[in-house]
C-alpha cells in the first residue's frame, strides 16, 4: 500500500486557498455589481476584501512549511513548467495573493490606513508616500481578481486530478468539485462573518449570499453525483478507488459528514431561510443562529472534502 506523503498541512492549505478564492470571488462580485454608481452590496464587498488575503497567506505558509527544503521554495519561481499543475498553481497563487492584498489595501478605511502608517518607525518615514487612497481601484482590482480567484479555486482540484497514477483523483470532475466547494466555503465564510457581527443584516445582502451559496452547493452536488456515477461505470481501478468511499474507510466521513452535514443540511437550511422569497413576497426572517450554523456546516464540509480526497486519493492506485 502507498504511504501518505501529503498530510494534514496540505489538506489545510487546499482548504484555505480555496476559502480565500471563494471569499474574494464573492467580494469582487459584490464590488462589481452596482446600483446608482455605488457597489450594490458594500458590506459584503468590504468584509470580503478584509478577509480574503489571510487564509491564502496562512495556507501558503503551511505549503512552504511542508516542503522538504522550505528555504528552496523560491525555486518554484525560477521556473515555469506548464506541464506541472504545481508550477502553474504557484504562479497563480503568487499573483492572486498580491491582488487580495491590493484589494485589502484599497478597501481599508482611511483612519485605519493612517493609523497603520503612523506605526512606521522614523527611518521608514519615506514609506508614507504610499499612504494613498486607492478606493477608485476597488472595481478594477475586483475584475482583475476574478480570473485569478477562479484559477486558484480550480487549480487545487487540478493539482490532484492531473495525477494519472491515482484513480481516485484522475477524473476531470475533481477540479470543478473543488472550485464550487471553494466558492461555497467563501460564501459561507461571509455569511458567518455577517451573522456573528452585531449589526443587523438587511434583506438584500442575505438574499444575495444565500442565493449564491444555494447555487454553489447545488453545482457542487451535481458534480459529486456524476463523479460517483462516472466512477462506478469506469475501469476497474477507478471502481476499486471509489470503494474507499462506498464501503471503505472513508464511507462515513464522505456520506454522513460531507454529503449529509456538509452539503445537503446547509442547503436545506438556506432554502428554508429563503422560503418566504421563493413562495410569497415576504421578507426573510433572517435567523442569525441558523445562518451561522449553515455557514459553519458548509465550512466543515469543505474541509472534509479536501481531507477525504487528499487521503483516499493517495491510497488509491493501479494494481
Amino acid at each position: 500500500m502507498k504511504t501518505i506523503e501529503w498530510g494534514i498541512l496540505i489538506v489545510n492549505y487546499l482548504f484555505l486557498g480555496g476559502l480565500s478564492a471563494g471569499i474574494f470571488f464573492v467580494s469582487a462580485l459584490a464590488t462589481y455589481l452596482q446600483e446608482d454608481g455605488q457597489p450594490a452590496y458594500p458590506r459584503i464587498a468590504k468584509y470580503g476584501a478584509m478577509m480574503a488575503p489571510w487564509p491564502v497567506a496562512l495556507g501558503s505558509f503551511l505549503l512552504i512549511f511542508d516542503l522538504g527544503n522550505w528555504y528552496r521554495f523560491y525555486k518554484l519561481f525560477l521556473h515555469f513548467r506548464w506541464e506541472s499543475p504545481m508550477s502553474i498553481g504557484s504562479w497563480l497563487l503568487l499573483v492572486f495573493t498580491g491582488i487580495t492584498f491590493a484589494a485589502f489595501y484599497a478597501w481599508l478605511p482611511e483612519e485605519a490606513r493612517h493609523r497603520l502608517f503612523a506605526w512606521l518607525p522614523k527611518r521608514l518615514a519615506f514609506l508614507k508616500r504610499f499612504d494613498l487612497d486607492l478606493s477608485a481601484w476597488r472595481r478594477p482590482l475586483a475584475m482583475l481578481g476574478f480570473p485569478f480567484s477562479i484559477g486558484v479555486g480550480i487549480y487545487t482540484g487540478v493539482l490532484l486530478g492531473a495525477v494519472q497514477s491515482r484513480p481516485f483523483w484522475n477524473t476531470n470532475l475533481v477540479a470543478q468539485m473543488f472550485l464550487f466547494s471553494a466558492l461555497s466555503t467563501g460564501t459561507a465564510a461571509l455569511i458567518l462573518a455577517l451573522s456573528i457581527n452585531r449589526k443587523s443584516l438587511d434583506f438584500k445582502q442575505v438574499r444575495f449570499l444565500y442565493t449564491l451559496d444555494i447555487c454553489f452547493i447545488t453545482l457542487e452536488f451535481f458534480i459529486v453525483l456524476p463523479y460517483l456515477i462516472h466512477g462506478e461505470l469506469s475501469v476497474r481501478a477507478v471502481q476499486e478507488a471509489l470503494k474507499l468511499i462506498l464501503g471503505g474507510p472513508y464511507t462515513v466521513a464522505f456520506w454522513l459528514f460531507f454529503m449529509g452535514m456538509g452539503l445537503l443540511l446547509p442547503l436545506f437550511i438556506e432554502l428554508w431561510e429563503m422560503k418566504p422569497v421563493l413562495l410569497a413576497k415576504a421578507t426573510v426572517h433572517h435567523n442569525k443562529v441558523l445562518a451561522a450554523g449553515a455557514a459553519f456546516l458548509v465550512l466543515t464540509g469543505g474541509y472534509l472534502l479536501r481531507y477525504i480526497f487528499v487521503y483516499a486519493g493517495q491510497i488509491s492506485s493501479f494494481r
Partner: peptide, 23 residues
C-alpha cells in the same frame, strides 16, 4: 528539489522515497 513530493504521488510504481536527512 524542494521536497514537495508531488513526484512520489505521481509515480504509479511507488519507486521514489523521501530522504528526510536531505529533504
Amino acid at each position: 528539489c524542494i521536497g514537495c513530493r508531488y513526484c512520489m504521488i505521481a509515480c504509479p510504481y511507488n519507486a521514489r522515497y523521501f530522504r528526510e536527512d536531505l529533504g
